[in-house]
Design a protein around this nucleic acid. Structure first.
Length: 304
DNA sequence: GAGACGTGGCG
DNA sequence: TCGCCAAGTCT
């Protein structure tokens, strides 16, 4: 990626256009309310990893109702947390959220840490989420780079149809260059660029007619050239361990207590089921109970 | 750094 | 229909 960097004048115009657009077009998500706690913000960010926001919102509301503080989640059994995760996907996130709640309770006096480095040290919190929580919960001038930001930057600044398969240092450096100097503007800018990527500068069919920066978009100005980088690795699904793991965990979510091994994933290859079970136990998502049963961790009541 | 890791909706 | 994709993280 070339080290394109807009001039100060262009940068100011870019900031103005995007911030104005956001002021009018932002979605009223509950975790964007000023009254939302840092814990609520952290929850929303982890739930949103690789997951459409529409699916996140109802679960987020349930969690905030049930566990309004880290200490309350920490006091819950991991299994009930995995159950409450529902079908959001990647249930290890639920487990890590529980672990993070324990760490916050024991080492941070029950308060979500406000510094990016401390956030980054929590289980399940990577570079993106640490920066996002620091920015959105505490108003930090952190550099937030997610898939939306990467795509908007790729098009508007670098002039290519899409970003590379994995994030580069150059992309982070560019995002840092684009960040407004003012703290408050920076925090809004971070969420505004993400929102622009989510609503207008989308992956499939970007709505350039509705874009506040179409007039200064390097990709549009360059005639919207097709992507010519390395292909993204496609994810297999049918028949994979991943699918069987999903079947097993869902069966356990639907049962009040441990389930007989044979009833976990009926009709599936036995060897594969055993392998997946071993992996799930290793991950802490499933717990063996007695000789032939498996349950969600810490959920011991036997099904009728 | 490549690959694993859920789930469901959309073009 | 079916591959692509969605506010990534961890090993």
């Amino acid at each position: 990626m070339s080290a394109v960097r807009p001039s100060a004048t262009d940068l100011a115009a870019l900031h103005g256009a995007v911030l104005d657009w956001y002021a009018v077009n932002s979605r009223p998500l509950p975790w964007r309310e000023p009254s939302c706690s840092p814990w609520g913000v952290l929850l929303s960010e982890v739930m949103s990893q690789q997951t459409p926001l529409g699916r996140v919102e109802p679960i987020w509301r349930q969690w905030m109702e049930r566990w309004p503080t880290p200490a309350q989640l920490a006091a819950e059994s991991p299994g009930e947390v995995v159950r409450a995760w529902g079908r959001l996907g990647y249930p290890r996130r639920a487990l890590r959220l529980h672990e993070a709640a324990v760490v916050i309770t024991e080492r941070h006096d029950g308060e979500v840490p406000r510094h990016e480095a401390d956030l980054r040290a929590l289980p399940g919190i990577g570079d993106y989420t640490a920066a996002a929580v620091a920015a959105f919960a505490f108003g930090d001038r952190s550099v937030v780079v997610d898939t939306n930001v990467r795509r908007v930057q790729a098009r508007a600044v670098s002039g290519v149809a899409q970003a590379a398969p994995s994030m580069t240092r150059a992309e982070v450096a560019l995002a840092a260059d684009l960040l407004p100097v003012d703290d408050e503007d920076a925090a809004t800018w971070n969420v505004a660029v993400m929102e622009l990527g989510a609503l207008v500068c989308t992956a499939r069919s970007p709505r350039c007619d509705d874009c506040p920066v179409v007039g200064r978009c390097a990709w549009v100005l360059g005639g919207r050239p097709a992507y010519d980088g390395p292909p993204r690795r496609g994810q297999k699904w049918h028949g994979t361990d991943r699918q069987v793991r999903g079947v097993i965990v869902q069966a356990l979510r639907e049962s009040p207590g441990p389930v007989l091994r044979e009833a976990l994933a009926p009709g599936r290859d036995e060897q594969q089921v055993d392998r997946c079970l071993a992996g799930l136990v290793e991950d802490g998502l499933v717990e063996p109970v007695g000789d032939e049963h498996f349950g969600l961790p810490g959920v011991e009541e036997v099904a009728g």
